[in-house]
């Protein structure tokens, strides 16, 4: 959980909701676009990106295992130490605790896309919460883009070309994983990102017990 310095209210980091304290019931808006990916992928798509700089004050503090351990939620090992696993009270056996999912919230619907089941070649296109969505997966970067696929009043359909690039079937315009069209008739257009994030299954499920799970038809 998070707290804010101003009121010390408590916030759920997965949902952005304040669940206790003065700001109870307030919800943080998710930034467009935030995407969990690799440095290689981000830098390739955004050569002009800025990067959070290393702060010499925090470099090499021995008590903190060093400033820059190369670990993250996707290192392949469960991120939660084994002794905490029994304390996870809200469970669902449909997936393994530590399976990575991309969870989205559209209208009243919550839906999880398990990364290990996602098709590599084809974007997923379906309606979620009454909205036509498209889910893109880059296996090399293990990164997901999830969008409302309506542009200029019509729902587009997407596919990967021979080189793996994402194109809409209509105009063959070229799109990148952040939902931006960078070449073609739709150049400059941007798909609206869904409210979603990458999470281990237990965390997504604990905060969204009514979630559905995507399955290949």
């Amino acid at each position: 959980m998070l707290y804010d310095h101003q009121t010390r209210s408590l916030w759920m980091h997965i949902t952005g909701e304040c669940f206790e304290g003065e700001l109870l019931g307030k919800v943080l808006r998710r930034a467009d676009t935030g995407r969990h990916t690799t440095w290689r992928d981000w830098r390739q798509l955004h050569p002009d990106t800025a990067v959070m700089a290393q702060d010499p004050r925090w470099l090499g503090r021995p008590a903190d295992r060093g400033y820059f351990p190369r670990e993250g939620a996707r290192s392949g090992d469960p991120f939660v130490p084994p002794q905490f696993v029994p304390t996870i009270q809200t469970r669902d056996p449909r997936l393994e605790l530590h399976d990575l999912v991309y969870g989205v919230r559209v209208g009243a619907e919550r839906r999880a896309y398990p990364l290990r089941r996602l098709p590599r070649a084809t974007p997923i296109e379906e309606d979620v919460g009454g909205v036509p969505v498209t889910i893109w997966f880059d296996e090399a970067a293990r990164s997901v883009g999830a969008f409302d696929r309506r542009v200029r009043g019509r729902a587009l359909a997407f596919e990967r070309d021979d080189e793996g690039a994402i194109r809409d079937r209509d105009t063959r315009s070229l799109w990148i994983l952040d939902g931006l069209c960078v070449e073609g008739a739709y150049q400059g257009e941007r798909l609206s990102p869904l409210d979603g994030l990458m999470s281990e299954w237990y965390g997504w499920y604990a905060t969204h017990t009514d979630t559905t799970i995507w399955q290949r038809y």
Binding site: A31, D32, T33, G34, R35, H36, T37, T38, W39, R40, W42, R43, H46, D48, T49, A50, V51, M52, Q54, W58, D64, Y67, F68, P69, R70, E71, G72, A73, R74, D178
Partner: peptide
């Protein structure tokens, strides 16, 4: 290259926050 980042795009500006730094 294989390090994880959280990438954010706001008003056309891209910023990357390396996950190991966030985890600290």
């Amino acid at each position: 290259p294989s390090d994880e980042v959280l990438g954010v795009l706001v008003s056309g500006r891209a910023r990357a926050y390396p996950v190991p730094m966030i985890s600290y």
